[in-house]
């Protein structure tokens, strides 16, 4: 653990990501304090105000303050990320560990099920799920969670297969350690580094996916301050008010970038085996 932290600190790009991430967390936590205005308040006398002293990042077509909406949007992005990645991690580990540990027919069935989910491109799958469930924030979380479950399952399954035959696992089995403690004590800990890396990178995917769904009008509810929704609102005003589209996009990019940088650095620091691997 100490070595990991040292290796991470030596990673310049990783530290840049960590600082960005800290800023993001800060703005999400203190959004109500930092925001100059109510993100939902429409100022009919200040429609499409250009960035300036009145509104630092301008206002949108309904006179809502862009900066305040971006700050509040970070809460939504993190919330969706947390719940959907949490779902994918939990469901993925359950499926992957079961498949890897049980092997045989169970493994075949679960692996084919994951292949099925994998064979629909992620945006398309999320769209289809949203079409069935309906446009709602909780449904976005569920849809993104389902879409990224197979990745976690594959990682977990691979790690289980790697350590399942390890001598210390056999030793534990020979002592009569039950299946569940065997997995929790001996097998899962070996999978933790790979899962941490995958979790961090999945946050990046989740933030991207939520904003894409909202941009397409199939994500969060219409008035919610979401970065993707802001870009959707802004695309009709591109020639008059570039700021509605430019600043939320920057927020998405910086957020995704910070998770990617931290994920890359963690991959290098935690496990040399994973270096330069999957995208």
């Amino acid at each position: 653990m100490k070595n990991t932290w040292q290796a991470f600190r030596m990673h310049r790009m990783g530290m840049v990501g960590a600082v960005l991430l800290a800023l993001l967390l800060g703005s999400a936590l203190f959004a109500p304090l930092l925001s100059p205005r109510d993100p939902l308040a429409m100022q009919t006398d200040a429609l499409l105000t250009a960035p300036g002293s009145d509104a630092l990042l301008g206002t949108d077509a309904l006179g809502r303050d862009v900066l305040s909406r971006i700050l509040h949007g970070s809460r939504l992005a993190l919330h969706v990320g947390l719940v959907s990645v949490g779902f994918a991690l939990t469901a993925g580990c359950l499926l992957g560990v079961t498949a890897g540990y049980a092997g045989g027919k169970t493994d075949y069935v679960i692996s084919r099920f994951l292949d099925i989910l994998f064979s629909v491109p992620d945006v398309m799958l999320a769209l289809a799920i949203m079409a069935v469930l309906g446009q709602k924030t909780t449904n976005v979380m569920l849809a993104i969670g389902i879409v990224y479950t197979p990745i976690f399952a594959r990682v977990a399954r691979g790690e289980v297969l790697r350590v399942k035959r390890a001598l210390f696992v056999e030793a534990a089995r020979s002592m009569g350690v039950r299946t569940l403690p065997l997995i929790v004590r001996h097998i899962l800990p070996a999978a933790v580094p790979a899962l941490i890396v995958q979790t961090t990178l999945s946050f990046a995917f989740a933030v991207l996916a939520e904003s894409a769904l909202s941009f397409l009008g199939l994500g969060v509810e219409p008035d919610t301050p979401s970065w993707g929704m802001m870009l959707r609102d802004g695309k009709d005003w591109l020639d008059e008010a570039w700021w509605i589209s430019v600043f939320p996009g920057m927020a998405i990019t910086l957020t995704v970038l910070s998770f990617n940088l931290v994920g890359d650095a963690l991959r290098d620091a935690l496990d040399p085996r994973l270096r330069g691997g999957a995208a």
């Binding site: 001598l167 210390f168 030793a171 534990a172 002592m175 009569g176 350690v177 403690p181 004590r185």
Partner: peptide, 21 residues
């Protein structure tokens, strides 16, 4: 080297058979 879990302390390693029983 391989038959003792590198992530466990000696105490946990020696306790494990007793726990299992």
């Amino acid at each position: 080297h391989a038959s003792l879990n590198p992530r466990m302390k000696v105490k946990a390693i020696l306790e494990e058979p007793l726990k299992a029983q």
